[in-house]
């Protein structure tokens, strides 16, 4: 059971990264238009380079 000493902090840390990524996405307006993003993936504008 000694492995728990490593595993529990490791799992908490990995989860924490996920949480931090979510906060980042939220702060960067990634959830402003889920409906539009769903459709945008289908059109070929800006496929080669990101929109300036």
């Amino acid at each position: 059971m000694d492995v728990l000493i490593y595993l529990i902090p490791a799992s908490l840390f990995l989860g924490g990264i996920g949480l931090a990524a979510f906060f980042w996405a939220l702060k960067n307006n990634q959830f402003d238009d889920p409906e539009g993003d769903r459709h945008r993936i289908l059109n070929s504008d800006w496929d080669d380079e990101p929109k300036p």
């Binding site: 402003d32 238009d33 889920p34 409906e35 539009g36 459709h39 289908l42 059109n43 504008d45």
Partner: peptide
Amino acid sequence: HCAACISAVERRLMQYPGVRDARVNLSL
């Protein structure tokens, strides 16, 4: 309501003289 709407609207607006940027928000 669709992907074609987004690009049609954005393209038309970008062609319009004097428009710098146009972005459709489909959720709203």
